[in-house]
Each structure stands twice: as structure tokens, then as C-alpha cells.
């Protein structure tokens, strides 16, 4: 009762990164609230999956293993989770803000008549006083998210309904092992008794999912290009610099929209959130939606011909000039100095 639950997505046979990030955050919240952390894993061939979860400090793994449960479809996952929530009465339940989490969580919220906040970028425990009634609440989950195209940040609470439901953006929580020797327990769910035939009305006929190719999220250095790179071939110089200094190439949305880079490389509110030790922004103006995905970087270098570009004010180094000039110089001097 009253524990924190994380729905764990399965991707290519393993627990998805975003779910591990949520477990890491969930453990911190559980410690603060002095409750347990529980995981729900639903899929097929889940033998030993709990071993990848225990190090995150998971106390109980609810496992539903059945060939009909992978790949994901909405209704069976919804039925299983809804029933678990009714029985276990979690205080908080977290989902990744992925195509699965954002399909599933609203349906669960509607069925339990609970409040749900989409696409959170931060979660904090705090108190709340209802304006009208003056009623005070302790230990609520602050669900913090950008709204209005990223121009404002809203803090949302669900004072009355439980669980407090949130979907959380991939990459904003750090993936952190709690203890490699942590041991929890598995509860195997008797799947058949949780499901009805009508849960299987939607059938998957075909699926063409590409394996994850680019993993900019875990790159220690990111060389990101914006619209100011001017062309796709301008990006080639960024690839050269990135591979030289051991980084990955990222991009702004304007650069992706212009066809300079793949969507998978997009950084920001509608792309990936990154926190590398070095972020080089080349020809990026630094709109709020872009900064939302990179402002936690340890060091930022901005290269821009506009001294007033907003990105400059969060940069540690600002180089004023033409990217086409400066990137080759960086390549040249890196080669010289690193010898």
C-alpha cells in the first residue's frame, strides 16, 4: 500500500532506458517518503528480467509474462495495471512519456478517475494548500512540466486522487544504480485471470521498428548544429569534429526540419534531453525549446555570429564568428594540441 510504482517498458528484450531512469528517480522519492519502490513489467519471455531491476532498489517486481503481451497493445496492459493499482493502491505511479506511456497512462487515469500530468521534466515532493478550502496537503508529488510551447513551466498537483500519475520525459532523470547487491521479490501475475477476450480486439499486422542507431543521450560530448550551419554538408564538419573528440552530433529542430540531420539527433523539448560534460552549439540561437533539452550540460560552448543569441547567456565560452570558419580551426588545433 502507498508505494511508488514504475511501469517498465520492454524494448528489444530489455527494460527501456526511460524506465530505468524512472526507477532511479522513483527510488529517491521512495526514500524521501519512506515507502517501497515497485516495478510492473508486462511482456513476453521475461525470464530473469528482475535481475536488471533490483540494482535500482526495486522491492517488488510485478511480472506479467505471456506471448500475447508483446509487442505492446493498449488494452491488455491497461487491464493488468488498472487491476494492480486497484489492489495495491500506490501513492505515485510513473510512466515514460514515450509512444507507449502516453498511450497507456491516460487510459488508466480515466479508468481510475485519477489526475495525470503529461511529459514531466521534474518531480519533487512538497506541500500544497487548496486555495478555496484552505485544506493542507503534505507529501504531494509536484509534477513539473513545460507548457504553452515551452514558454512557461507549470507545477501540477493531484491533491485528492491516488495514484498521482505522471508521464516523464526520457533523459531528464539520471540513470543511477542504487546498490548492486539489492534484492527484491517477484510477484508473478496470473495473466489469464486479469484479461478478457475483448482486450485483444486491436491486432498488430505488421511492425517495422528500427534498432536504436544513434545514442546521443549517453554521449559525453555533443557537437550540435543549428540552422546556422547552412547545409547538410556543413554538418559533415561537425561529424568530423565529433568523431575526433569522442562525441556525437546533435541538432536543433530548425536544422532537422531543414534536412541537415536526422530527427533522432534533435535536442530539446520535442527531441532528446541530454546532459553531456561538454555541449558545443554551432549556429544555434538557443530558443527555450532547445535549451530545455541541453541546459543541464556541464560545459557549454556557443559558436554564433550573433553576439545577442540567447544561447550565449548560458554558455561558458562564446565564440563570435562564422561556424564555417571556426569549426575547421577547432579541428586543426585539436589535432595539434592532442598529439
Amino acid at each position: 500500500m502507498n508505494n511508488i510504482f514504475v511501469y517498465c517498458e520492454i524494448d528489444e528484450g530489455a527494460v527501456a532506458d526511460v524506465s530505468l531512469e524512472l526507477l532511479s528517480k522513483g527510488k529517491k522519492l521512495a526514500t524521501e517518503l519512506n515507502c517501497k519502490l515497485e516495478a510492473i513489467v508486462i511482456g513476453s519471455k521475461l525470464d530473469n528480467i528482475e535481475k536488471s531491476l533490483y540494482p535500482y532498489g526495486v522491492d517488488i517486481v510485478h511480472k506479467a509474462d505471456d506471448t500475447r503481451l508483446y509487442p505492446y497493445t493498449t488494452l491488455p496492459h491497461c487491464s493488468i495495471i488498472t487491476r494492480i493499482f486497484k489492489e495495491e493502491k500506490p501513492q505515485i505511479a510513473l510512466f515514460g512519456a514515450t509512444s507507449i506511456g502516453r498511450d497507456l497512462a491516460p487510459r488508466i487515469a480515466s479508468s481510475l478517475r485519477c489526475g495525470l500530468t503529461a511529459d514531466c521534466t521534474n518531480l519533487v515532493i512538497g506541500e500544497y494548500t487548496e486555495n478555496k478550502t484552505g485544506k493542507e496537503y503534505k507529501d504531494l508529488l509536484y509534477q513539473i512540466r513545460p507548457a504553452f510551447g515551452g514558454s512557461i513551466i507549470a507545477t501540477i498537483v493531484n491533491p485528492e486522487t491516488r495514484p498521482q500519475l505522471a508521464t516523464v520525459r526520457e533523459g531528464v532523470m539520471k540513470n543511477e544504480i542504487f546498490s548492486n547487491s539489492y534484492k527484491g521479490e517477484v510477484r508473478n501475475i496470473k495473466v489469464a485471470s486479469y484479461l478478457k477476450d475483448s482486450d485483444f480486439i486491436v491486432k498488430i499486422i505488421d511492425r517495422q521498428i528500427e534498432a536504436k542507431k544513434i545514442n546521443i543521450k549517453s554521449a559525453p560530448i555533443i557537437v550540435a548544429g543549428g540552422y546556422g550551419m547552412g547545409s547538410k554538408s556543413g554538418f559533415n564538419k561537425l561529424f568530423e569534429l565529433a568523431s575526433l573528440i569522442g562525441g556525437e552530433v546533435g541538432a536543433s529542430r530548425a536544422a532537422v526540419d531543414a534536412g541537415f540531420a536526422e530527427h533522432e539527433r534533435q535536442i530539446g523539448q520535442t527531441g532528446v534531453t541530454v546532459r553531456p560534460k561538454l555541449y558545443i552549439a554551432a549556429g544555434i540561437s538557443g530558443a527555450v525549446q532547445h535549451r530545455a533539452g541541453m541546459d543541464q550540460s556541464a560545459q557549454i560552448i556557443s559558436i554564433s555570429n550573433d553576439p545577442k543569441a540567447p544561447i550565449n547567456s548560458i554558455a561558458d565560452y562564446v565564440i563570435i564568428g562564422d561556424v564555417n570558419d571556426i569549426i575547421p580551426k577547432m579541428i586543426k588545433y585539436y589535432k595539434e594540441k592532442s598529439k
Binding site: I152, A154, T155, V157, V288, I319
Partner: peptide, 25 residues
């Protein structure tokens, strides 16, 4: 509506002391 808006903040630009460099070698 079970969700309540506790607070709305405008996104303010954090400010760092940056080193300004030129494009000179």
C-alpha cells in the same frame, strides 16, 4: 478536475559568466 495548477512560472534565462572569444586563431 483532479489535477490542480500549483504554480506557473515564466521560463527565465539562467545567466552564466561567459568567456567571449573571437574567431582568431
Amino acid at each position: 478536475s483532479p489535477t490542480k495548477v500549483k504554480k506557473i512560472e515564466n521560463v527565465v534565462l539562467a545567466h552564466k559568466e561567459s568567456k567571449i572569444l573571437s574567431d582568431q586563431d
